[in-house]
């Protein structure tokens, strides 16, 4: 049953028109902002919220407080709170910050989520082992769009 569902989902995905997903190397930053959706489609805010709290994915709450997520324990305070982020930044700017915040904040401690390197001593996830070849970005284009869709809801 589960397998059938997964197969079904895979078929649906395959059936979608090959939407123009922007590869990492072709992303255009203008003053740190990315104008166009990386998938060519709007993201899903609910899925974005999950990406943001998952340790292996965005793990944004490791460094940011998000008051709209009161159920998520132990939110960190390395970066500014994300409350009201959409009042301070446009969607395009938020997309740029999520994809690679170093274009907006020089030397930022915030990791670059839509980047493939080069990295110094790149590892295989959190295993401590090295990784040969090109690492996929931490977040997929779709996940970046999902996170952006969530962030634009953060108005005060």
């Amino acid at each position: 049953m589960k397998q059938q569902m997964m197969l079904g989902a895979a078929l649906v995905l395959a059936a979608l028109p090959a939407m123009a997903e922007t590869p990492v190397a072709e992303v255009k930053y203008v003053d740190g902002a990315i104008a166009e959706s990386l998938t060519g489609a709007p993201g899903d805010a609910a899925a974005g919220a999950k990406v943001m709290t998952n340790r292996g994915q965005g793990n944004c709450v490791a460094c940011h407080v998000i008051s709209a997520m009161p159920d998520v324990p132990f939110q960190g305070n390395i970066g500014p709170t994300l409350d009201g982020a959409a009042d301070r930044w446009t969607e395009a700017e938020l997309r740029g910050i999520v994809a690679d915040a170093k274009h907006t904040f020089e030397g930022s401690m915030m990791p670059s989520f839509y980047k493939t390197g080069p990295y110094i001593r790149q590892g295989d996830g959190y295993t401590g082992k090295g990784f040969e070849g090109t690492l996929p970005p931490i977040l997929t284009a779709e996940q970046v769009e999902d996170v952006v869709a969530y962030l634009v809801t953060l108005k005060e």
Partner: peptide, 25 residues
């Protein structure tokens, strides 16, 4: 001071710039 790995973090990012702060728990 070298920022390593896919997260590009150095010892200093955590222990010099952010001691006293919380990174998750």
């Amino acid at each position: 001071y070298t920022r390593t790995g896919q997260l590009e973090l150095s010892c200093a990012n955590c222990h010099e710039d952010n001691y006293g702060n919380h990174i998750r728990a």
